[in-house]
Amino acid sequence: MAQTADLFEFLCRMGDNTLVLGHRVSEWCGHAPVLEEDIALANTALDLIGQTQMWLGLAAEVEGQGRSADDLAMLRDAWNFHNVLLVEQPNRDFGVTILRQFLFDAWHVEMLQRLITSSDQRIAEVAAKSVKEATYHLERSSTTVIALGDGTGESHNRMQDALNLLWPYVGELFADDAVDTAMSEEGIAPKSSDLRDAVMARITDVLAEATLQVPDGDFTHKGGKTGFQHTEHLGHMLVAMQNLQRSYPGATW
């Protein structure tokens, strides 16, 4: 059996990715450019937060310290969140939001497809349930990236700006550390680097169809999934997300 600490860490990474992105996407609720997108984004956010309940619920169970998924989501500070830096980036305009979603979805679908055959039955079940939602998210975000990238001059430029901004955050998705190695040795999850070829093929296909240029250089921001160094944006987001539990500890309704 893998060390409990490693398994807990892996599950928190999965849950923190979906939680942070889910909250970011939910910030669009009531603000999206058209009604149809508003509802679609809210659905996506709810899917991701639903998946978070499963991942963090399982993490809390594995930890065995009496914490719940809610405790993990609402009562940890920024340095204990181990999501990749990509998902905590602010929404900015709709182009950045949808491109961030696409880059995450491309990785997410591949990861979940691999986790369906996890040696840990509980993880396999969460993955099987989540992958249908993630597949839809990817279809939707791919279609939108292509439509906007290969759209008007304005939409193309905004998507190219979004890609230039977010591209340095993609590499972290494929960066291995000791937790990845431990998960891989037990057949619980693939190494992050194992996903690179399949995910990059998916991403570059869509970007080519969207007439977008992949930026030069392979510089990668890191520090989110290890918790070593988040961007300044995560703390601000958590202030809004956790405000209620922090102001009224234990409040329920």
Partner: peptide, 9 residues
């Protein structure tokens, strides 16, 4: 896209 939107709405 209309089908995707209809699915969501």
């Amino acid at each position: 896209t209309a089908i995707l939107n209809a699915r969501d709405v």
